[in-house]
Design a protein around this nucleic acid. Structure first.
Length: 760
RNA sequence: GCCGCUGUGGUGGAAUUGGUUUUACACGCACGACUCAAAAUCGUGUGGCCUCACGGCCAUGUGGGUUCGACUCCCACCAGCGGCACCA
């Protein structure tokens, strides 16, 4: 039979829809397995090779578990709010609602053509009011719990996307979305108090043994907990502040603190409250604050600073010390001021040397004693509160009303969702104001509390809002009364295995853990941590080893590969490229190897007179273990090797082979299962084969004979020989005799069925 | 600078609870079969060096070490990738 994927794949995809291959049952009595892959942004370019990787892995894993008797939930949806969707819409001049719907339709077609066994009956869309109703509802719970607050502060601002950004969205000083260098801007923003969960987020990592170490470590570093102390220094003759508080982890070095340094931000606050700073100080502060964050914090930069002329008292030795202002001190960490101990800190030393400040070598004091005497214990985090408002149109409206009389009032839960108004003009304004602010008939509303005139909050939520709880919704996606039914959550959550990218470690993965912990604390959900096991995948590069990009011209389009080779070949080659977690380069040349393999599978004719195969049992063991441990590349190799080595197989053994191959090449195996094997039901509904452990043992083994650790011969023998039997056999070898002639045998090392080593 | 990961043929990669003459599987390449020819397919070979050959020596980034035995463990160094980046 000739293998022509284009003739068979559509037919079986339709068949799977009809029989509901991926449908998960909330009332199943089976053991559950919740397998999740990050849901895609439906961008205008369609899904790319980077999507194929986790979805194929998840699909193989899901099909495997279904065949092993699990009730599997492998859902999919669309993370369709946010900048990519909106920017695409702006570029094409189409309303984001329409372009998003088109992009979703296209992406869905792609996923179906790849043979993914998602449960399409649970498809969700973050831009669907029925969905974002609950995103808004969660926000209100955060607000009511005091974890959402409004504040004016210096925030990251992307001048190209024209919106504020969270700390996590600034990668190497640039906007995570568009790569533009981020500016600092003083703006009124909504924040989520993720810092209140810093300890819980950190502590929870301890209970996730199946997360990769590097992922946990990265989150740990991002949270950045350090234990130290707050120490107050009194300020002399200064009316704008009586004392200056610093955070330090080295209270034991307090006696060596010979000056204090404040950040330009703190100096600015003093100036704003009326301090007549010396001219050079005022000038320095102005210049520092105007600098780009990256310039200011570049490490190889020379230290700069100015003496404020103000003096303070070191509480330990009562000595008078100067206060300087310098931009190596960060305004946003600790108190925005430090005590400088040049003897013990390289940065302080560099500064002191440059400006001729005192460096003394005072003895250390016990740290706890110092804290007790001169300050208070303090735990400081690097984690900042999450800037949660965006000045863009395409996002969930924040469900709050501003009322002159009542202040900020939450929209009544009965009135959710606050739907995004239909407008023609939705370009970002760039003024720090959301485009929604211009829509008067939407903005003007009644206060939910007093019924008087009120104005809606016009900022929208960030990209990350909808994805911060989506896995919960999959458990019960159509629920109108709550985000998901408790018993459905009890059955499905937590997610057993979560496939996704490394780039989300300190973004989506951190945010969603935060929301999950919060919802758990509030009693709305049943699990403390959302994902039991996290499996990151490497990125797919172009054949030149560079990131795929249009400008490089190295983009490989999965649709074209599919047209040429079919979905099964594409899937298997993608898995064959390398270990799931490593970065791989897509090399279109190598794909023919997989196509040739599937051609041979298709052309294989089983032979009823062939004896029962033992190697098929080894294959069952190998494939079962490889899928379980996410080693798909070696599983594919094992299939190839098996077919190379077995030219004759009877029908029963061939059937086992086809079942094992089914999760990898779902269409081709289904075709063979029906057309060649003449079965009526689906190959994907079969039970996973079980191997006979008695049959995988070899009767004959090859034992290596070493002399002083060097291999000198190999003897074939029955398995399970004792040491003396093996010794006798080995000494009979001519080669061994030759090498043993010159010495006496001392030690003998024998490892059964493997090797015998004579030490001479 | 700090933290983490990686380093094996022309290429992607296998093998790491130390143990079957490193390089499974695949690509590529060479030769052969089939063909008028090509493609496809099938078969054989394919780490390096020396040798007509038998055979030998050297090889898992580099240099040491532990061990009967090291790709696998330890130390130092080099190179690449990722994260954080003046966090006091």
């Amino acid at each position: 039979m000739k293998y022509d994927p284009s003739k068979i794949e559509k037919r079986w995809q339709k068949y799977w829809q009809e029989i509901g291959i991926g449908k998960a049952d909330n009332n199943s009595s089976k053991k559950k397995k919740y397998i999740l892959t990050e849901f895609p942004y439906p961008s205008g370019e369609g899904l790319h090779m980077g999507h194929l990787r986790p979805y194929t892995a998840g699909d193989v894993y899901s099909r495997f578990h279904r065949m092993n008797g699990f009730e599997v939930l492998y859902p999919i949806g669309w993370d369709a709010f946010g900048l990519p969707a909106e920017n695409f819409a702006l570029k094409k001049g189409v309303h984001p609602r329409i372009s998003t719907a088109n992009n979703i339709e296209n992406a869905k077609k792609q996923l179906l053509s790849w043979g993914m066994s998602f449960d399409w009956s649970r498809e969700i869309n973050t831009t669907d009011p029925e969905y974002y109703k609950w995103t808004q509802w969660i926000f209100l719970q955060l607000f009511k719990a005091g974890l959402a607050y409004e504040a004016t502060g210096l925030i990251n601002w992307c001048p190209s996307c024209k919106t504020g950004l969270a700390n996590e969205e600034v990668i190497d000083g640039k906007c995570e979305r568009c790569g533009t260098v981020v500016e600092k801007k003083e703006l009124r923003q909504w924040y989520l108090k993720i810092t209140a969960y810093a300890d819980k987020l950190l502590d929870g990592l301890k209970y996730l043994p199946e997360w990769p170490g590097p992922v946990k470590l990265q989150q740990e570093n991002w949270i950045g907990r350090s234990e130290g102390a707050l120490i107050k220094f009194s300020i002399l003759h200064f009316q704008f502040s009586e004392e200056l508080e610093v955070f330090t982890t080295r209270a034991d070095t307090l006696f060596g603190a010979t000056f204090l340094v404040i950040s330009p931000e703190l100096a600015k606050r003093w100036i704003d409250s009326g301090w007549q700073a010396p001219d050079d100080v005022g000038k320095y502060v102005k210049i520092s604050l105007a600098k780009e964050e990256r310039q200011r914090t570049a490490e190889d930069k020379d230290k700069t600073g100015v003496d404020t002329g103000v003096k303070a008292i070191n509480p330990a030795n009562k000595k008078e010390i100067p206060i300087w202002v310098a931009d190596y001190v960060l305004g946003g960490y600790g108190t925005g001021a430090i005590m400088a101990v040049p003897q013990h800190d390289e940065r302080d030393k560099e500064f002191a040397k440059k400006f001729g400040l005192l460096i003394v070598d005072e003895p250390l004091v016990p740290i706890n004693e110092a804290i007790e005497k001169f300050g208070t214990k303090k735990i400081q985090y690097k984690l900042r509160d999450w800037v949660f408002s965006r000045q863009r149109y395409w996002g969930e409206p924040i469900p709050l009303v501003h009322c002159d009389k009542c202040g900020i009032v939450p929209v009544s839960e009965d009135d959710l969702p606050v739907t995004l108004p239909e407008v023609e003009k939705y370009e970002p304004t760039g003024t720090g104001e959301s485009p929604l602010a211009a829509i008067e008939e939407w903005v003007n509303t009644k206060c939910p509390e007093c019924g008087g005139d009120g104005k809606r909050e016009t900022n929208t939520m960030p990209q990350w809002a909808g994805s911060s709880w989506y896995w919960l919704r999959y458990a019960d996606p159509k629920n109108k009364n709550e985000l998901a039914d408790k018993s459905a959550l009890k059955y499905w959550t937590p997610v057993d295995v979560y496939f996704g990218g490394m780039e989300h470690t300190t973004l989506h993965l951190l945010y969603s853990r935060f929301w999950n912990l919060f919802l758990y604390d509030q009693g709305y959900i049943t699990e403390k941590e959302p994902y039991l096991k996290r499996i990151p995948h490497g990125i797919v590069l172009g054949s030149d080893g560079e990131k795929m990009s249009k400008s490089r011209g190295n983009v490989v389009n999965p649709d074209e590969i599919l047209e040429k080779y079919g979905a099964d070949t594409m899937r298997m080659y993608e898995l064959f490229l390398g270990p799931h977690e490593s970065t791989v380069s897509w090399n279109s040349k190598g794909i023919v190897g997989v196509k040739r393999f599937l051609d041979r599978v298709f052309g294989f004719i089983f032979d009823e007179s062939a004896p029962e195969s033992k190697t098929v049992h080894k294959l069952i063991k190998k494939i079962t273990e490889d899928i379980s441990s996410i080693k798909f590349n070696t599983a594919v190799a094992a299939f190839m090797q098996f077919l190379n080595e077995n030219v004759r197989l009877n029908k029963k053994d061939w059937e086992k082979f086809i079942i094992l191959l089914a999760p990898f090449a779902p269409h081709a195996t289904e075709e063979i299962w029906h057309e060649v094997m003449k079965n009526k039901d689906s190959v994907h509904a079969q039970l996973w084969p079980v191997y006979d452990s008695g049959l995988i043992l070899d009767e004959k083994v090859k034992i290596v004979v070493q002399i002083n650790g060097k291999v000198r011969d190999m003897i074939e023998a029955d398995s399970g020989l004792t040491e003396s039997e093996a010794k006798e056999l080995a000494l009979g070898s001519e080669k061994v005799k030759k090498y043993l002639k010159s010495g006496n045998i001392g030690k003998i090392i024998y490892i059964q069925d493997r090797l015998i080593n004579f030490v001479v």
